[in-house]
Design a protein around this nucleic acid. Structure first.
Length: 586
DNA sequence: CTGGGGACGGGGCCC
DNA sequence: TGGGCCCCGTCCCCA
């Protein structure tokens, strides 16, 4: 851990420690007891603890930061850090005495800063490289060491707002901190706390990529035999979620009661709550505890209690909830099911279907917790992984009845059958070329060939009225796409409005928006994550990847719905034909 | 440019 | 209510 010892000039400052080290002045007259203070006890205690830390004795917690390892003591960290206090505090009542060994990955805190903070924890003296003050400040903020944070600010002569953080970032960080604090009360897993911390950090500071790097970047191992205990924190190499799936799905592995490691069960079988209860009882693996139910509700409520939060998603915005109620009450439409819609806190999209919001959220975060054990490809959903696995197993459950072809997907078969039937139901409204698949028609329309043909076609513009389509080309037929296009024509054509962000297709994603969305997603997971962010490493990695994808203009997922696609289609037709009208008038 | 396969995201149904 | 499973529409890639 001392590999990162500094050679830079240092500032030294002593700040009051919030640790109650032994200055217990007993009440002299109470029950005849006499309190004899030992003023040096606290210092000696710290000194001994520090010696133990340096010698690696009795260390039951290892902090890691970007490859650097810092053995430490849980009790000390809990005493000095609000973060760890709340992280471990929930275990106090567990009656286990805090045994075991933990690894807590804190890549979001610079190694030097972490080292300095540890020194502070054990010496009450903060030794900071002058160049690293800001890192220490941030580390202190993240770990909830307020006195250090205040001292750093004083030295820097900065207010929190002046540290280069925007108000929004500050708010996000504060919210995340609060969220962590809340969740910490119910959370007993260092891994999750670490994850949370990382989430928060990323959301506010744009952690560098190395910190986000997946498993390989963090050579955390579990040096103690005790690491096999439940307190081992698989913070770096998340278990392959699909293994979880395989383990936990009776249909695939046949053993739904397979051993569930603490971090693993997070998104399975109810997510965090199972884990919360299982973890302290790992010594005698618990049956799936029914007692979770009540607590899970409580936890949820606690986790989402102050939903003045910027997202307030899972607690369902009133309007959305009302929609759900209305839909349910109306009983109309489909079946009377508790399909309470939930609103995505990032894209505001209403997600229908119970339990679908976490799935949708992964489209924003890029989290792909389901990895193929054969080829390593990751998926956002286990059902997709399952289908993918057919490639490796050779299973092609959809045979064509007319030929020997077999397919992985039912819809592939459907497409294939259209070949046999020769049906080409999708016709280009402009060049009348027919396609067997709608997406091929769309692709065709986006290409140039159709445009070339189209320019040779006589046609009329939309402004001539809804029925002003006397092109004589038979476009009046019942092609639904064309009908929709024509409907679009009938509407007021406002090109600028169509270009506005926030058109029917939803907000466009510009690079600046990407960061904001990622931030929102992170904040959202500060909200959801305690229950659903099973593999934050993937989540964070996904955010990185996502940034790239978004920067390339890829739709975040909210505009792929058929309805929105139709809107885009209508817009495209409007624009294209509108342009042509201008040309013709010229 | 087109046909085809695969991946991805959303919704419905069921447990 | 959450999650699994399935279907569907859409996009991307490759031949």
């Amino acid at each position: 851990m001392d590999a990162t010892r500094h050679t830079l000039p240092r500032l030294q400052l002593t700040v009051p420690m919030p640790i109650k080290t032994g200055k217990v002045a007993m009440s002299p007259g109470e029950d005849g007891l006499i309190g004899i203070p030992f003023p040096e006890h606290s210092n000696e205690l710290l000194s001994h603890l520090n010696n133990q830390r340096r010698a690696g004795l009795l260390c039951d917690l290892t902090l890691t930061s970007r490859g650097a390892r810092y053995p430490t003591h849980r009790s000390v960290m809990a005493a000095v850090s609000l973060y760890f206090r709340q992280l471990f505090g929930a275990e106090e009542g567990g009656g286990e005495g805090g045994g075991g060994f933990s690894v807590c990955q804190l890549d979001c805190v610079a190694p030097d800063a972490l080292d300095a903070l540890l020194e502070f924890a054990y010496t009450a003296t903060l030794t900071i490289p002058s160049s690293g003050m800001r890192d220490v400040l941030r580390g202190a903020q993240l770990l909830g060491i307020q006195c250090v944070a205040d001292a750093c600010r004083d030295i820097l002569g900065e207010t929190a707002e002046a540290e280069g953080e925007t108000a929004e970032e500050q708010r996000a960080q504060h919210i995340a901190t609060e969220r962590i604090a809340q969740e910490s009360r119910i959370m007993k897993g260092s891994r999750r706390k670490t994850d949370k911390l990382r989430v928060k950090k990323v959301g506010s500071h744009h952690i560098n990529s190395s910190a986000l790097n997946p498993p390989s970047a963090s050579p955390v191992s579990h040096p103690s035999p005790a690491s096999d205990s439940f307190r081992s924190l698989p913070s770096t190499q998340p278990p392959s979620p699909e293994q979880d799936e395989l383990h936990h799905k009776s249909g695939q592995n046949g053993d739904p009661k397979a051993i569930r490691e603490p971090g693993r069960g997070a998104t399975l079988n109810g997510g965090l709550l199972h884990w919360l209860h299982e973890r302290p009882r790992i010594a005698h693996p618990p049956p799936v505890p029914p007692l979770n139910d009540k607590l899970s509700e409580d936890d949820d409520m606690e986790g989402f209690g102050d939903d003045s939060m910027l997202m307030g998603s899972t607690s369902i915005p009133t309007s959305v909830a009302n929609q759900g109620v209305a839909a349910t009450a109306a009983g109309g439409g489909r079946k009377r099911k508790s399909q309470t819609p939930q609103q995505c806190p990032v894209c505001q999209k209403i997600i229908h279907g119970a339990g679908k919001l976490p799935r949708h959220m992964r489209t924003h975060t890029g989290e792909k917790p389901f990895q193929c054990s054969a080829c390593g490809v990751r998926f956002t959903r286990n059902d997709k992984l399952k289908i993918h696995m057919r490639k490796h197993t050779g299973e092609r459950p959809y045979p064509c009845p007319h030929c020997s072809a077999r397919f992985l997907h039912s819809y592939d078969l459907k497409n294939h059958l259209s070949l046999h039937s020769g049906a080409r139901p999708f016709e280009c409204p402009l060049c009348h070329k027919a396609f067997a698949r709608e997406d091929h028609l769309q692709r065709h329309r986006k290409g140039h060939s159709c445009l070339e043909l189209r320019t040779r076609r006589p046609r009329r513009g939309p402004e001539h009225g809804e029925d002003g389509r006397g092109d004589g080309s038979g476009m009046e037929q019942s092609n639904p796409l064309e009908a929709m296009s024509l409907q679009a024509h009938s509407s007021a054509f406002l090109p600028h409005a169509l270009l506005d962000v926030g058109s029917a297709t939803g907000p466009l994603m510009y690079p600046a928006d990407v960061e904001r969305e990622r931030s929102l997603a992170l904040q959202a997971f500060a909200h959801l994550g305690s229950r659903r962010l099973a593999y934050p490493e993937l989540f964070l990695r996904g955010l990185e990847l996502r940034g790239g994808r978004e920067a390339e203009g890829e739709d975040p997922g909210g505009t792929h719905s058929p309805a929105s696609q139709r809107d885009r289609w209508a817009d495209e037709v409007e624009e294209e034909i509108g342009e042509e009208d201008v040309e013709e008038e010229e």
